[in-house]
């Protein structure tokens, strides 16, 4: 009887111990999360979240430097270059946008200047608010007079 009642505790102890030993040996195993993406562009476009994107910035990648996106969902086909900030807006990940702003992305740089307008074109009001709070120019008259067709990939708005 004692062994039976203690069985859940034994199973939990062995299971937890085993899982952590496995984590130590194989930290990249799918059981503990997705493997670290190969690039900042991958981290952003594959929806891997701010935790996956930040290590690239921490390791010295310039948050204002252009990155190549080769993902049909974003470019509509083919490869395009844009800033990480624009890519993060296209992915609608406000956490990555905030992280980039925190760690050096400049909203006054040419590659980021239309960030607020782009978020507006995507109809993403939350993102616009995030960018406005970060100091983006929120004058709508400044925005390029381009509509965005929702059936198209977001980065096509720039071309």
């Amino acid at each position: 009887m004692a062994l039976c009642i203690a069985l859940p505790a034994i199973a939990a102890a062995v299971g937890l111990g085993g899982l952590e030993a496995y984590r130590l040996a194989t930290p990249d195993a799918p059981l503990f999360g997705d493997p670290q993406p190969r690039s900042l562009a991958d981290a952003i476009t594959r929806g891997r979240g701010v935790e996956a994107a930040y290590p690239f910035i921490r390791d010295g990648q310039d948050p204002n430097a252009l990155i190549s996106i080769d993902d049909e969902d974003y470019t509509g086909g083919g490869e395009r270059s844009c800033s990480p900030l624009i890519a993060a807006i296209a992915s609608r990940d406000s956490n990555i946008v905030q992280m980039l702003v925190n760690f050096g992305a400049r909203l006054d740089r040419p590659q980021n200047r239309d960030a607020w307008c782009f978020a507006g074109a995507l109809g993403d009001e939350t993102m616009q608010n995030v960018l406005a709070a970060a100091g983006a120019d929120t004058d709508p008259d400044r925005c390029p007079r381009r509509d965005w067709d929702r059936s198209q990939a977001p980065l096509t708005w720039f071309h």
């Binding site: 199973a11 939990a12 937890l16 701010v50 956490n95 992280m99 925190n102």
Partner: peptide
């Protein structure tokens, strides 16, 4: 009760992940 004890571990982990995320995203504000 063992399930609840495991949840204590998992919730504490999630709390740490949330705190880390807050540092990444909230500094400028």
């Amino acid at each position: 009760w063992q399930a609840r004890a495991i949840y204590t571990i998992e919730f504490t982990r999630q709390r740490a992940v949330n705190a880390h995320r807050e540092w990444l995203t909230d500094l400028s504000r």
